[in-house]
Simulated scan of single mutants.
Amino acid sequence: MQTDYSFTNDSQAITIRLDQNNPDLLAYLQQESITSWAYITAWNPLSFPQTEEYNHSQQQILREQLKDYKVFEGEGKGRDGKWPAEASYFIAGISRDKACEIGLDFGQTAILVSSESLEPELVILHPPSVENNNF
Rank of each mutant, 00 (worst) to 15 (best):
F106P: 03
G76K: 05
K67V: 09
S88G: 03
E64V: 09
G93F: 01
E116Y: 13
F90H: 06
E73L: 03
S88E: 00
C100W: 01
E75K: 06
E64M: 10
P84W: 04
R96E: 11
F106Y: 13
Q59P: 08
E86F: 03
W83R: 14
S114N: 11
D68R: 10
G74Q: 02
K98R: 11
L62N: 04
F72S: 00
L104M: 07
K70C: 01
D80M: 05
E101Q: 13
F72L: 00
Q65C: 06
G81H: 02
N55K: 14
G93E: 01
Y89D: 00
I124N: 13
D105Q: 13
A99H: 05
D105T: 14
I124G: 11
L66C: 04
G78S: 13
I61G: 03
G74C: 03
A99C: 06
F72W: 08
Y69Q: 07
V113A: 09
T109G: 13
I91K: 00
G78A: 13
A99R: 07
Q58L: 11
Q59L: 11
V71M: 02
S115E: 15
V123R: 14
K67I: 10
F106N: 03
A110D: 11
K70F: 00
N55F: 11
I102W: 06
S117C: 12
K77P: 00
A87S: 08
G103L: 02
D97S: 12
Y69A: 04
V113R: 06
N55Y: 11
I94H: 00
R96W: 04
A99K: 07
G76S: 08
A99V: 08
H56R: 15
Q58H: 10
A85G: 08
R79V: 11
D105N: 14
K82Q: 10
I111C: 03
I102V: 11
G103C: 06
K77V: 02
I102K: 12
K98G: 01
S114V: 03
G81V: 02
K70Y: 00
I111S: 04
A110V: 13
D97P: 02
L112S: 07
E116K: 15
N55A: 13
A85R: 08
D68A: 13
A85C: 07
A87K: 05
K70I: 04
Y69R: 12
H56L: 15
F106R: 08
E121K: 15
S114A: 12
F90V: 04
V113Y: 06
R96F: 09
Q60P: 02
P84D: 07
Q65R: 12
S57K: 15
S57G: 06
A99M: 06
R96A: 10
K70A: 00
V71F: 02
L112W: 08
D105W: 06
Q108W: 05
R96S: 10
V123K: 14
D68H: 05
K82I: 10
E121W: 14
G81Q: 01
D80T: 10
Q108L: 09
D97G: 05
C100K: 12
E86H: 09
A87Q: 07
E119L: 15
A99F: 04
E101M: 12
A85H: 04
A85Q: 07
D97E: 14
E86G: 07
G107S: 07
P120I: 14
K82V: 11
G107R: 07
G74H: 01
I61E: 02
L62I: 03
A92T: 04
E101P: 05
I61K: 13
G93D: 02
E119Q: 15
E101F: 14
C100M: 10
Q59A: 10
Q108P: 09
